[in-house]
Design a protein around this nucleic acid. Structure first.
Length: 551
RNA sequence: GGGCAAUUAGCUCAGUUGGAUAGAGCGUUGGCCUCCGGAGCCAAAGGCCACAGGUUCGAAUCCUGUAUUGCCCA
């Protein structure tokens, strides 16, 4: 971060002297090949037309000006006109001071300042416990919120509770069915109901609390009692499961409050006024085709029933009325067909859908146990609950696993592998890096060694190839946070951490620290490793994974 | 039938939004424990980036087809 900013400053100045504005297409990035220096830029190529100078010639001219800047040790013009820049060791060594000074704040950015983002995730219908598939959305959403906060966005997380629809009625009905069954009443199995054992438990609770009372109520009322009881208990369970998974929602937003507040009518009226909604065949339609959808969608069926879509529009309308600049929705990938419709609806609400609605699709999880795939269905009562998995493998391992893939790629969640403490499960590898450094400090204290304070002179001892690699990687951490925030990709953090942990483990093998045989060298290396441990800890915090002192 | 996505090493996946000779881990093969934590490290082998065109100084990346897989919709 500091290196790119610094280099860009020098280049901007050089271009400004030639009356050339900073070209949009300029890239400044670490090259793949280390032989090409610390940072490479294409600026001479993209500015050559404006400068009316061939790329290589422009590059040569810029080269001289860069070398005049104190921290640049070398500049090389390569290929069609790349500038390969190498910084002086002292420049990198300062990174240690930067990290140690900032502590927990290293990697905090302000690229999001002034932007309010709402991240809505999980939002599973309270018709049954969360299963492992929900776990992925939970990990991704929670971690994304942490990343965005670190990047300086003002973030609020929310769980939308679909408590008003058909699914909830079916839940009520399912509980009532089990209730009657428990009492030995004559029952016929409903065609469509929730079969999980938890439904029987809920029925038994009602029985224990109120006895046979429900039998005396009219069917509809009894169903309602069952539904409300089930909803409350299941929602409490969901909240607990998320807590145990270290997932936090700032706001729990029930669909029913939206209806009660008249938000749906308000949104409908606004659409009708804009000529975007109309009556046809006894139903109420939303003209989404105006916004690129392939056909118009029904909001109110001819029977008067609202579609899912109707309350979702009102809900998103409400989000924007609450003042969010960006709404992030995290959905299961099976809802991808819904994206164009939602974008259309945001456009109809008078907002730029690309800028203000970001839908992140999270692919389904294949749960594997003993090499076998486990099929899951809430309705059929066949699923592995999130709570069970967390109890079995721990929140750390589960979260890291979910965050170690791009969210829109398929994920095989192999229970046996996640429990293994090996590279199949990199969370231990990363945590171990932290524990290793911390234990080194414990050891130093035990031996009565107190390192001299870090300063440029002391840190000049960090001059091996491994030192440089670690220093450069530390310096890239803020860039990683930035990229993760800008592309809504928390998994970038986990890849970075694996990389950093790998470098640390190698460093440890090659360069003795306490056994360096020289107090100044030992101190310098301790400071470097303290910085590494701090970054590992900050990164793990973004993933919601703990950084243990010892393992 | 229409739509959305995916396709990179034996397996699981990255690839910084178009940069230079393609990157990890696992697995395989071969090394490293008188040494601060071996839950570790080093090395080797392994690639037509699904296929065919196109765009430009330059493509795994963008565009158009084709194939395969997954998922949505009627």
């Amino acid at each position: 971060m500091r290196a790119t900013t610094y280099l860009q400053g020098l280049l901007e100045k050089a271009l400004a002297a030639r009356d050339i504005p900073w070209p949009e297409k300029t890239t400044i990035e670490p090259p793949r090949d280390k032989a090409h220096g610390d940072l490479a830029t294409n600026v001479a190529m993209v500015a050559s037309k404006q400068a009316k100078t061939p790329p290589r010639q422009l590059a040569e001219a810029l080269r001289g000006e860069l070398l005049a800047g104190g921290d640049v040790a070398g500049v090389e013009v390569a290929g069609p006109g790349f500038l390969n820049v190498t910084f002086a060791p002292a420049f990198w060594q300062r990174t240690v001071l930067e990290v140690l000074d900032a502590g927990d704040g290293y990697g905090r950015l302000d690229i999001g300042r002034g932007t309010r983002i709402q991240v809505e995730f999980v939002s599973a219908n309270p018709t049954g416990p969360l299963h492992i598939g929900h776990g992925r959305g939970a990990a991704v959403g929670d971690s994304l919120a942490r990343v965005l906060r670190a990047a300086g966005f003002e973030v609020e997380t929310e769980y939308y509770i679909n408590d008003a629809g058909r699914q909830m009625r079916i839940l009520g009905m399912s509980i009532l069915y089990r209730y009657r069954e428990l009492l030995g009443e004559p029952v016929t199995e409903p065609e469509d109901y929730y079969r999980g054992d938890y439904v029987k438990d809920l029925a038994r609770e009602l029985l224990d609390q109120g006895g046979r009372a429900l039998l005396d109520l009219p069917e509809a009322e009894a169903t309602d009692v069952c539904r409300l009881h089930g909803e409350k208990r299941i929602l409490d369970g969901i909240k607990k499961d998320l807590r145990d998974f270290r997932v936090h929602h700032d706001v729990w937003f029930p669909e029913s409050t939206l209806l009660a507040a008249g938000a749906v009518d308000r949104t409908f009226a606004a659409l009708r006024e804009k000529g975007l909604a109309y009556d046809k065949d006894g139903a109420f339609w939303f003209a989404t085709t105006n916004f690129g959808d392939d056909k118009d969608r029904v909001l109110v069926k001819s029977g008067g029933e609202l579609t899912y879509f109707a309350s979702d529009i009102a809900y998103h309308d409400d989000k924007f009325r609450r003042g969010f600049d960006v709404a992030v929705d995290i959905w299961g990938a099976d809802h991808h067909g819904y994206v164009p419709r939602m974008k259309a609806c945001v456009a109809a609400l008078g907002r730029d859908p690309e800028a203000s609605l970001k839908v992140i699709l999270v692919q389904l999880v294949n749960l594997l146990k003993g090499g076998e795939q486990i099929a899951m269905s809430t309705r059929a009562g066949k699923f592995e609950t999130l709570a069970d998995v967390v109890a079995e493998v721990g929140a750390d391992a589960a979260r890291f696993m979910f965050l170690s893939r791009k969210s829109d790629s398929h994920l095989d969640f192999d229970l046996d592998a996640v429990k293994q403490k090996s590279m199949d499960n990199p969370v231990y590898y990363v945590q171990y890096a932290h524990a290793r450094v911390r234990s080194l400090f414990a050891k130093a204290a035990e031996r009565g060694f107190s390192p001299a304070p870090a300063g440029p002179e002391l840190l000049a001892r960090l001059d091996t190839a491994e030192d440089m690699e670690l220093l450069k990687l530390l310096e890239q951490y803020p860039d990683t946070v930035s990229a993760a925030a800008r592309t809504f990709s928390p998994h970038l953090v986990s890849f970075y951490l694996r990389d950093l942990a790998g470098r640390l483990h190698r460093y440890y093998t090659v360069n003795p620290v306490l056994a360096a045989g020289d107090d100044a060298l030992a101190a310098a290396r301790l400071h470097l490793l303290a910085a590494v441990a701090a970054v590992v800890k900050n990164g793990l915090a973004l993933l919601g994974v703990s950084a243990p002192e010892k393992m």
